[in-house]
């Protein structure tokens, strides 16, 4: 089922519609934007991968603090280099689309926040998450004391089974109580 990158057949389009939360317009727009990132020769290669650097030139991702994590989570590359095929790209847009469910959104948010990919958010992950959100430079970071306090608060609030880490179901429980999450976990092309 190789798709040529230059055009979308009717069958592929309906398959994409069936497997993602995207509408026809959104898929076509995504395809257009994806093709714009390709050079002329690459357009004819089926299942072409676009490197992380080139994906991040998209204005929708360019200034997002989680841009690299997002690419890594959605990439199916064997080299773990964060490169995306068109289908990976669609998967990304589907998870961030308006009609994606809370479960999907929280699942991917969890994986984005899980910086070491070990399946739980431990205090290292949380620290990285906070740094990502406040800025990486020394003057914008929280002091170590503040960070320690913050992480204690976070764990106190969400670590229900008291094992020192936040797992997916605990995370989803937290997310279900913050109604803003669904409306803000959104990227539109």
């Amino acid at each position: 089922m190789g798709t040529t990158a230059s055009q979308l057949g009717k069958d592929t389009l309906s398959e994409y519609q069936e497997l993602t939360f995207l509408t026809k317009q959104e898929i076509l727009l995504a395809h257009k934007r994806f093709s714009e990132l390709l050079t002329k020769d690459e357009k004819d290669i089926p299942n072409i991968r676009i490197s992380l650097e080139r994906i991040l030139t998209l204005p929708e991702l360019k200034s997002n603090p989680f841009r690299k994590r997002i690419c890594h989570v959605f990439s199916t590359s064997e080299h773990k280099d964060g490169s995306l095929t068109f289908e990976d790209f669609l998967d990304l847009l589907s998870a961030f689309s308006d009609s994606a469910t809370m479960e999907i959104k929280s699942h991917y948010a969890f994986r984005i926040f899980d910086f070491d990919d070990d399946g739980t958010l431990d205090s290292d992950d949380l620290q990285k998450l906070v740094n990502c959100l406040t800025g990486e430079t020394d003057e914008t970071r929280l002091t170590p004391e503040e960070m320690r306090q913050l992480i204690t608060n976070i764990l106190e609030e969400s670590d229900i089974d008291k094992d020192g880490t936040v797992n997916l179901s605990e995370f989803q429980h937290v997310i279900s109580r913050s109604p803003d999450f669904v409306s803000s976990f959104k990227i539109v092309l």
């Binding site: 929708e60 360019k62 200034s63 989680f66 914008t140 913050l150 937290v174 539109v188």
Partner: peptide, 27 residues
């Protein structure tokens, strides 16, 4: 608590200046 703040990051913000300002506010 803190989770509300951490989860409230707006992924739809694309403007560079706005991102910086938001990080600042969040801190």
């Amino acid at each position: 608590g803190a989770w509300q703040l951490l989860c409230s990051w707006d992924f739809s913000i694309t403007n560079e200046r706005a991102v910086r300002q938001r990080k600042n506010n969040l801190r």
